[in-house]
Amino acid sequence: MDDAALTRYARHILLDEVGIEGQQRIRQGRVLIVGLGGLGCPAAQYLASAGVGELHLVDHDTVDASNLQRQILYRAADLGQPKARAAAAFLHQLNPDVLIHAYPEKATLDRLHTLCAQVDVVLDCSDNFATRHAINQACVQHRVPLVSGAAVRFSGQLTVFDARQTQAPCYHCLFPGGDEVTEVADMRCATLGVFAPLVAIIGAAQAAEALKLLAPCGAPSLGRLHLFDALRQEWQTIRYAQDPACAVCQPDAARRSSARSAS
C-alpha cells in the first residue's frame, strides 16, 4: 500500500479491527451489486470510497426524474442514461483506484451465475422477488456471501446469508415465496412509495456488512433479520434458521421429502 493509499484509508487503518491487513483485503475484494436504485446507490458509493478493489454493477434500467428523490449517484444531466453506466462514471470520479464493471442489462439467472463466480460478496439491492430468488440461487451454488436489503414506505430490512457455512440459511429459507406472494410484493414495491433517507440507511448498512465480510471483522448478520422503522427510528431483530427441507440450499433433503410425500 503506497503513501497515497495509506493517507486515503487512514481512518480505516486506525481501527484495530481493520488495520492495514484488513484494508488491504478490502482493496483486493470484488463485490457484485445487483440493482442501482435507492439501495444500490449508497451501497456502491460507500464501497467505492472505502477502496473495494472491484465493483460489478448490474441494472438494466435508465435514470428517470422520479429516481432523483433518493438515488444519490445520479444528476439531472443523467436522465435517460443507463443507470449502470451513470453510476460507474460517478464512482470512477469518487475513487479512480476502484476497477468498475458496468452491466446495463437484466440480472438473468444465467448472467448471475457467471458474475457470482467472479466475486467475493454479492449485494442484493433489487426491487422484486423473482430477481432476489435468482440471486440467492446463484450465491448458494457458487458459495458466495449475500447481503440482502429491502425498503418500502418507511420500513427497511437487512440480513446476510453465507452459503460457505453448512448450517447457514439462505434467502429461500426465510422467504420461500410463491407466485401470488411475489405478484403482491412486486406491486407494493412499485406503488407505495419510499422515504428517501430510508434507502440510504439500509444501503449504507449493506455496505457495512460487505466490508465486514471482506476485512473480515465483526459478526455478520447471519440468521438475523433486522427490521427498521423510520417513522419511530427503531430497529427490531428477528432470528431465523435454515429450513432443513429448503429446495435451494438443501436440495437433497427437499427431494427426499418430496419422494416420501409422493409415496
Results as ranks from 00 to 15, higher is better:
A5W: 08
R8N: 09
L14E: 02
E21Y: 13
G22Q: 09
R30S: 06
V31D: 01
V34R: 08
L36Q: 01
L39A: 09
A44N: 01
A48S: 05
S49R: 00
D61V: 02
V63H: 01
S66F: 08
S66R: 03
Q69D: 06
Q71E: 05
A76T: 13
A88T: 10
L99G: 03
A107W: 05
A107T: 05
T108Y: 13
H113W: 14
H113R: 15
L115E: 11
C116T: 15
T131L: 01
Q137T: 13
H142L: 12
R143G: 13
R143V: 12
L146F: 10
G149M: 00
A151M: 11
F154N: 12
G156N: 02
T159V: 07
A163G: 11
Q165V: 07
Q165Y: 15
T166Y: 13
G177Q: 11
D179Q: 14
V184F: 08
A185H: 01
R188W: 06
V199L: 06
A200W: 07
G203L: 03
A204W: 00
Q206E: 08
A207R: 01
A208G: 03
A215E: 12
P216C: 02
A219Q: 15
G223W: 13
L225A: 11
H226P: 04
H226L: 13
D229F: 09
D229M: 05
A230N: 06
W235P: 05
W235R: 11
I238W: 13
P244Q: 04
R255D: 03
